[in-house]
Design a protein around this nucleic acid. Structure first.
Length: 340
DNA sequence: TACCTAACATAATCATTTT
DNA sequence: AAAATGATTATGTTAGGTA
C-alpha cells in the first residue's frame, strides 16, 4: 500500500500529525546514515529527506527516536553526551559533528508575523496539527518551526497542563460524546458552523473535526477514489507512482456525513493547480484524506438534502465546506477579530 | 556583555501500526 | 493483545542576533 491509509478505515486523530510509515528501503537508508552519524546536521537531514521523500522534520524525529531506542537497547551505543557508563565514550561523531553547522539557520520571524503565533498562543498553547498548518500558512513559516515556537513559548509561559481532553458538549441532557482537545477551537462558537456538524454522537471518540489547510494556496488535487473517501494529494504526489516512498505523509479525516450508499466509486475529479514544481520546496509533502462514514442522522436534513445527489458528485460542496471551515478558523485566529 | 529566543537535546508518554 | 515505532510533550541547553 502506497498510501498511508488505515487499513481498518479507522479515522486517525487529526490533532496529531498522521503517523509516517517508513518502508523497508527508507529504513535501510536511514539506518545506514544513523550508523554513520546519529546526529545529522541540517544539510544531511535535508538531503535525506529529499532522497527518501519524507519531510525533514520527520527525519529529525526518526533520528531522535532511534537514538532513544539505541540507548535503551544499550547495545554498546551509549549515545549522546551522557555520562554514566564510561564504557565507550568515544563516539567521534558526537563531539565532532554536532557543532556549528548542525543547526538549522535561525528563522527570524518578522514582527508583523510573529504577532500571529503569539496571539495564537494566547488562545491555545497546544495547537493541533491543523492549527499549526494554518499558522504556518499565515506566517510563511514551516510548520515544524511553528511547533518549535510553541514549544519554546510554553517553556517560557508554563500555564496549561498537557493535552487535556474534555468533552465539548456535555449538557445535562442528551449530550453526545464528542471529545476534542481542550485547546481546540470551540467550533460551536464559530458562526455558521453549527449546521456543518453532524450530531456529535456520530463522531467517534478520537475523531477531530478541523480542516487541515487553507484553501487559498492549496495545491492539492482532490481525488475521489473510493466510495468512502476523497483524497487530496499534491500534484507531485499524484504524479508519482505508488511505490514511491513519499506517498502520503499526512492524512486528515473530516467527518463529512455523506451517505455511504452514494455512488462515488467512479468519480475521479482532479483539479490541478498551477504550481506543480513548487512542490519540492520546504512545503511538506502531504496528502489529505477526507473520509466519511455512515453518519446519517436525523438532524442532518440540510446536509442530506445537499448531498442527496452524490451521484453527480458534489465536490464543490466539499470544497465549499472546506472553505467555510477554513474561513471560520481563520476568523477565530485572526487577531483583528477579537471576537472571543 | 546580557538578554532574548530559535534550534535542538533527552526522557517520558501518547497513539497508531505491525506482529 | 503485545510489541514496535512515530509523534508530542516537558524541560533543559546551546548558540546567534541585538539592545
Amino acid at each position: 500500500m502506497g498510501l498511508n491509509s488505515t487499513t481498518s478505515g479507522r479515522p486517525q486523530k487529526e490533532t496529531w500529525k498522521v503517523r509516517t510509515v517508513y518502508n523497508q528501503s527508507q529504513k535501510d537508508i536511514l539506518q545506514k546514515w544513523f550508523e554513520h552519524n546519529p546526529y545529522p546536521d541540517t544539510a544531511t537531514r535535508r538531503q535525506l529527506a529529499k532522497e527518501i521523500g519524507i519531510p525533514e522534520y520527520n527525519i529529525q524525529i526518526w533520528f531522535k527516536n532511534q537514538r532513544t531506542k539505541r540507548r535503551l537497547l544499550g547495545s554498546g551505543w551509549s549515545l549522546g553526551k551522557d555520562q554514566t557508563q564510561g564504557q565507550e565514550q568515544h563516539q567521534p561523531w558526537i563531539q565532532e559533528t554536532l557543532p556549528k553547522e548542525a543547526r538549522q539557520d535561525q528563522t527570524s520571524i518578522a514582527r508583523s508575523e510573529s504577532n500571529i503565533p503569539v496571539q495564537a498562543f494566547d488562545r491555545n498553547q497546544f495547537p493541533d496539527i491543523a492549527t499549526r498548518r494554518i499558522l504556518a500558512k499565515q506566517t510563511g513559516i514551516q510548520e515544524s518551526r511553528i511547533q518549535m515556537k510553541f514549544q519554546n513559548q510554553r517553556s517560557l509561559h508554563p500555564g496549561q497542563s498537557r493535552k487535556p481532553v474534555i468533552s465539548l458538549v456535555d449538557g445535562p441532557n442528551e449530550t453526545p460524546n464528542l471529545t476534542v482537545q481542550q485547546n481546540q477551537i470551540d467550533l460551536s462558537t464559530v458562526s455558521g458552523w453549527s449546521h456543518h456538524f453532524p450530531s456529535s454522537n456520530s463522531f467517534s471518540k478520537n475523531q477531530t473535526v478541523l480542516p487541515a489547510l487553507l484553501p487559498s494556496h492549496v495545491s492539492f488535487v482532490p481525488c475521489v477514489s473510493q466510495g468512502t473517501s476523497v483524497m487530496l494529494v499534491q500534484p507531485m504526489q499524484a504524479v508519482q507512482e505508488e511505490n514511491s516512498p513519499s506517498s502520503l505523509a499526512l492524512t486528515n479525516y473530516l467527518p463529512i456525513p455523506l451517505t455511504p450508499g452514494g455512488d462515488l466509486s467512479n468519480i475521479h475529479a482532479s483539479f490541478w493547480p498551477q504550481n506543480q514544481e513548487k512542490c519540492q520546496n520546504h512545503k511538506e509533502q502531504m496528502g489529505t484524506v477526507l473520509q466519511w462514514k455512515d453518519y446519517s442522522h436525523p438532524h442532518l436534513e440540510r446536509r442530506k438534502h445537499q448531498l442527496q445527489d452524490l451521484g453527480q458528485v458534489d465536490l464543490s460542496y466539499i470544497m465549499q465546506w472546506w472553505d467555510e471551515c477554513c474561513q471560520a478558523l481563520l476568523a477565530e485566529w485572526d487577531p483583528q477579530e477579537g471576537t472571543s
